[in-house]
Simulated assay, not measured.
Amino acid sequence: MMRRIMTSAVIAAALLPSVPAIAQASVEERIAAYRQRVERLEDQAEIEKLQSLYGYYFDKGMWSEVADLFADQGTFEYGQRGVYVGRQRIERALLLFGPEGLGPKRLNNHMQLQAVIEVAKDGRTATGRFQGPVMLSEPGAQARWGVGIYENRYVKKGGTWLIASLHFYPTAWTDYDQGWLKSQLPMEGPSALYPPDRPPTEVYRALPSNYIPPFSFRHPVTGEEITVVQPADDVVGRD
Rank of each mutant, 00 (worst) to 15 (best):
Q36W: 10
D175E: 12
A120N: 09
P214E: 10
L207V: 12
Y34P: 00
R198I: 01
G132M: 14
M1N: 02
A13H: 03
R3L: 00
G148E: 08
G140Y: 08
V147N: 10
V19F: 00
V10H: 01
H219T: 07
M1E: 06
G179I: 02
A206Q: 11
L15V: 07
S216V: 09
V116Q: 13
T171E: 06
A126D: 04
D177C: 02
L107R: 15
T174V: 07
F76P: 07
M187K: 10
Q24H: 15
R40T: 12
L16M: 12
A12Q: 01
N210L: 10
G179L: 02
M2D: 14
P186G: 10
S165Y: 02
Q131W: 11
F70G: 03
I31T: 11
W63Y: 08
F58S: 05
V203E: 14
V38H: 05
R35K: 04
A32C: 07
Y56N: 08
T7E: 08
F70K: 00
P104H: 14
K49I: 09
A126Q: 02
R87E: 01
A164L: 09
L41C: 08
V236I: 13
L95I: 00
T227A: 10
K156A: 05
F168L: 14
S137C: 03
N210C: 07
Q73D: 13
Y154A: 04
D68S: 13
A25T: 09
S137M: 05
V155E: 10
G189D: 00
E39M: 12
G82F: 04
A143W: 04
A71W: 10
S209I: 00
V203M: 06
Q51T: 13
M6W: 04
P170H: 02
G140D: 09
